[in-house]
Amino acid sequence: MHIPDGFLSVKVSAATWVISLCGIALCLKKVTARLKDKMIPLMGVMSAFVFAAQMLNFPIFAGTSGHLLASALASILLGPYAAAIVMTCVLVVQCFLFQDGGITALGANILNMALVAAIGGYGVYSIAKKMTGIIVATAMAAWLSVVLASSVCALELAASGTVALTIVLPAMALAHALTGGIEAAVTCLIINFILKVRKDLLYKP
């Protein structure tokens, strides 16, 4: 889902950069107000955790494997704004160290995977939590965060004229509807584990 350089037009690239910068500025403000000095080490180590979590491959079926996006996981554990910052740091490091996602497309990648996936995922979680249990809400948030992020990614590619919307949107959404299932299962297992061991660590608004 990381968009490389050269896939986006100037307009889409600039627009997504502006939206992402405003989004991150807002998130930094919110989290600093809540955590004060503590946010620096906490966000740093949590970014390292998400980065490591993304490295772990899970078996899917018959020899194939995939890894977590972990946006929903981070937002359920740390809250939406902190999760957006954590995901942003992960994306910046991936962009520079691994060339996973281009510099001109970094704004779009932050928008998809940090802002839309984390904050959208948390929105779903907080609404669904009231109606059902934490675990069902987690599953819905995790699945939807992946599908939402990939759909926005498809929209950006289509808006840049790189690919036709009628082809890329169904393809991306369908592929990620499947991987989203794994994301949901693994996220639920992790949240279930943390509920058993350290319930107090889940984010409380």
Binding site: A25, P41, G44, S47, A48, F51, M55, V92
Partner: peptide, 23 residues
């Protein structure tokens, strides 16, 4: 680039190898 973000990223770079080792 906001210094808050840079500080978080330097922390992340410091601990990413530690956590990956544990994993």
């Amino acid at each position: 680039v906001p210094s808050l973000l840079i500080m978080i990223i330097s922390f992340m770079y410091r601990y990413v190898f530690v956590l990956e080792d544990e994993l």
